[in-house]
Design a protein around this nucleic acid. Sequence first.
DNA 1: CTGTTAGCGCATTCAG
DNA 2: CTGAATGCGCTAACAG
Lengths: 342, 342
Amino acid sequence: MRITIHDVARAAGVSVTAVSRALNNKGELSPEKRARVLAAAEQLGYVPSGVARALVSGQTKTLGVLVTDNTSPVYAEILRGIEEAALGAGFSLLFGNSADSQEQALRWLDLVHAKHVDGLLLTPVQTDRRDVERLGAWGIPFVMLLRYFVDVPCDYVVTDNVLAGYLATRHLVETGHRRIGHVGGPPWTSSGRDRFLGYQRALLERSIPLDADLVTCDSFTIGGGARAAEALLRQPNRPTAIFASTDLQAVGVLKCARSFGLRVPEDLALVGGDDIELAEFLEVPLTTFHYPARDIGRIGAELLIARIQDGMNQVDLERNDRFKRIVVDPKLIVKKSCGCSD
Amino acid sequence: MRITIHDVARAAGVSVTAVSRALNNKGELSPEKRARVLAAAEQLGYVPSGVARALVSGQTKTLGVLVTDNTSPVYAEILRGIEEAALGAGFSLLFGNSADSQEQALRWLDLVHAKHVDGLLLTPVQTDRRDVERLGAWGIPFVMLLRYFVDVPCDYVVTDNVLAGYLATRHLVETGHRRIGHVGGPPWTSSGRDRFLGYQRALLERSIPLDADLVTCDSFTIGGGARAAEALLRQPNRPTAIFASTDLQAVGVLKCARSFGLRVPEDLALVGGDDIELAEFLEVPLTTFHYPARDIGRIGAELLIARIQDGMNQVDLERNDRFKRIVVDPKLIVKKSCGCSD
DNA sequence: CTGTTAGCGCATTCAG
DNA sequence: CTGAATGCGCTAACAG
């Protein structure tokens, strides 16, 4: 049996109101009584029920966090960052993976909506917009991470993926490559598209025509990278370099290159993305770009918490056009896989 | 303004009880009314308040999950496994990292206790037992993952770490090594200790005396592995092989070996642990041991949910001595770092 | 079959 | 300063 405010009141010989006042330190109360209550509460090991508080206050002090896949190093980092900010502000985290499936995302969103999360941090599934539409309808404040929609006004924290793709590809161009393949991510994701746009821009800048045969798309995973690389490398006139959207995909490329008997970087230059912790310890240390994933999570959570505490809901924001769009710059990390030091 | 059961009742022209009955499909209710209620609820987009339900039922349909560090691949996998089982049963996950700090763990436990989690999955911080003692006092059902206490009766799901350490070390012995160093984990963790015990057993079996200079301990991270390896490799009579508790530590060993100009496996054989996804793609593909981390999470969650639904609390369990202690066997994965194929 | 009522634990009016 | 009373949204007796 859980002990309640009534038990404390009885033990301290006061009313429940007095207990509530003492514990929340608000309202008038004689110091003497306050002390008596606090002592009784301490002695009984009383813990106020968050559920009851939530029912009366309408605030659960809980944030929902929906990511694509927490086993991916980038999302794992983001989660850490979110936690840092949330715990500091007294918020708990209801966590879920979408696996980039809209159905799974919607199921999870329904679940946390029923649980009255005060706000939401999410990497949207961008195959369609049912998720963000639902959030809008519910009026729950939310902040997008890593991905955004140009025409959905909301807060988001992302890295400049166009710049990232550009830096990666330009580096390969400058190293002398002209047949540069691209292992892209799912085309419906803004991150995947933007990195591709950066790739395209770098080529354009040097007047290298875009060769459709050199552009592939697959999931942001090792397996996805391997499949995409397979399609690129089996071509008679195969690329001499590949820009893979993510380090995980780049690992897939490494694996595939090995099976083709190609050495990296001698036979195939390679640049990845995200700068995962293990990038420098791989078979071939990976040239990649870095951005502060943990900070993205932390900043997103801080922003969301500020929104919640300001009591601004999405509608208010829309009216005021006061959304924060935070974009952090990536920077190129040159290691061995691009072969530029040869 | 959130829409409530009263709104639905009014819209359908029935009492709130009727609505409750229709939605939960329990109690008597004419099919005709039921249909009318369901239609109204659907039409209004009504979502029952989990908070209110929790207050009355005493069940939040929420599980707490406390891991050491979600950025570590093993915990990330476990989290996935937990989610699989939890979502299927309609449970949400309140997530947190302890960073192996008892203070942080206790802070988080207080938080989720106030939120009335129905149960808890955790990797205990084993520096002391305040965490499990608190859980016992609260009477919240919990299941330990990856770590356990011999003298704390409770459910747990772990891998046989003694066997794991034994398999890893025996393999090195069989390859002809006699000076085998050990990069261990934090000595207060059961997983770290057990892997060391396995190491010790393998040596004993071959009558190789344990050399205290060859045993080091540090955190289960790349940095920890590098520091520990540094201590081992700078010795005049350095080991010819190292068994590192985890793959992450093994990566640290690789890094350190490189800085000493030692080639792996030619100058230094190496075996890691956990079989992280990237193990085979490292500078030197890692010989390691594997166990189903995701399954451990899933099984733990299933077990916990069964406990919750059976309504058995810790006290009942203690009386009945019916705790489940699930131990899954690890198996050795031979790659290149051990040098056995030479 | 149905609706009225009484809490779940708490914060917050509102009269004393 | 203080406490009794109200209600957050819902479920479960309880009477019709």
